[in-house]
Amino acid sequence: MVKEPILISATAHYSMGGIPTNIRGQVRKNRDELVEGFYAAGECACVSVHGANRLGANSVLEALFFGRHVGKEMVKDIDNLDFGEVSEADAYNMVQEINYILRNNGIESVSKIRDELQESMTENAGVFRTEETLKKQLEILDSLRKRFKHIRIEDKSRLFNTELQEAIELGHMLDYAKFIVEGALFRKESRGSHYREDYPKRDDENFLKHTLAYMDKDGNISIETMDVTLGKFEVKERVY
């Protein structure tokens, strides 16, 4: 038998959690309030049908069922909704973000920062995590976020600029990574697909809760919790 090495790497199969919504797809502002006129459905949303682990093939439920259901609910609401106020400053922020990336003349490369982000997240915040690896990852993230401010891209054109797209995406990835790490650090237990080697047991007393995380302008995250509606089903230990 010939043995040959093959390259393998971890990949993102599904984002658990996401934009919190109620069962009609309306986005939650916090535990008690909704954001008027803002809906989410599909993988980006978290209506909480999956518990702490989205099992194989169940994405269909969110993507197909809730896509349709939330669409219908939006149709019901639309006559009673007005356009929200939009200030010029809001548009300016988005244009600024793009211009910043196009014009910035730093020394950092998008692909290098992204590689380091991917490798360190897999290593420290992957399937098995501990307080130690997660804290280490927070430091790495802070340094990567600082370096991101000094990127430079070669493509300055406004035509099919995939380099600009990759840079914008990296900015978002750096934000999301922080949500993942802070959420994992907060949850001192193991549940669903979240496995803390330093807290291998499920702890319903303290953590049978949703995590709501908010990021402020400086990139700091604060965490609240929300009760879980269990409905018919009891949470049980996974034994397979």
Partner: peptide
């Protein structure tokens, strides 16, 4: 090529 040599290469 895009990530190590020329970021503007588009595909």
């Amino acid at each position: 090529i895009k990530w190590e040599h020329s970021g503007s290469l588009s595909y």
